[in-house]
């Protein structure tokens, strides 16, 4: 069964009525975007479950959370925030440049995005590495000394930033695949919904970090 048959007739009608849209519109860009958004909602609620936990435990142990947050480096968090914002901007600029048929610039922006993602992960690696070194990790010696609220803080810290990091990696893989498709002209100036969808995913990961940053690094 060919993928062409996915197309619905009403779209066919639209396409026939607007022949200038051309052959390549055997697809439903809005539908594809809608599907992506619905997927983003599931991601929002996936993290949402953990934000509920965070809110509850912060409510119960607000003082311990403040103490625990002292162990986090605001500068590393802020730098990572800037890195992600820049990468998000680059993705959206990549779409603009593709619309302007500037394939090289588009790929350049996406390379920049990948570099940002990698830089973020490197920062994260050193951040986690340092904590593990001084014994702040689940079942670690330093954590065992701490109060219950602090243990929960770091439990949530590891799970939430860890899952977020995992999403960065997945997003980078998506963007890498998209870049290959742009290179092979499978994604072009008039057929770039896939690029836009992975952009949406990347922005969502950015948005989640926008909340994680103040909630973990900026409690004083």
């Amino acid at each position: 069964m060919s993928q062409n048959s996915d197309l619905t007739l009403h779209q066919q009608h639209v396409h026939e009525a607007h022949a200038h849209v051309g052959e390549h519109t055997h697809r439903d860009d809005v539908g594809s975007k809608m599907g992506m958004w619905l997927f983003l909602f599931t991601e929002v609620l996936l993290f949402g479950g953990m934000f509920i936990l965070y809110a509850s435990y912060r409510f119960m142990y607000s003082d311990a959370f403040k103490v625990a947050a002292e162990h986090l480096d605001t500068y590393v968090g802020a730098i990572n925030t800037i890195i992600l914002l820049a990468s998000s901007c680059a993705v959206v600029l990549a779409i603009v440049s593709l619309q302007k048929k500037n394939k090289r610039l588009c790929l350049g922006f996406l390379w920049f995005t990948l570099a940002c993602g990698a830089a973020f992960m490197v920062n994260k690696y050193f951040e986690w590495g340092h904590k593990i070194e001084i014994g702040i990790y689940p079942k670690g010696p330093a954590l065992a000394e701490m109060s219950e609220g602090e243990v929960l803080f770091f439990g949530l810290y590891y799970v939430m930033t860890g899952l977020h990091g995992l999403h960065i990696i997945i997003g980078m893989i998506f963007i890498g695949v998209i870049m290959a498709m742009i290179q092979k002209n499978k994604i072009t100036h008039d057929n770039f919904q896939k690029l836009e969808n992975s952009g949406l995913y990347w922005h969502l990961v950015d948005v989640i970090w926008i909340f994680l940053f103040p909630l973990f690094y900026l409690i004083h």
Partner: peptide, 17 residues
């Protein structure tokens, strides 16, 4: 598997959550 404290009351967690 990792003993991360989230729900376990022994680590301060809240099973009702």
């Amino acid at each position: 598997t990792l003993g991360i404290g989230v729900f376990d009351p022994a680590l301060g967690g809240d099973p009702i959550l």
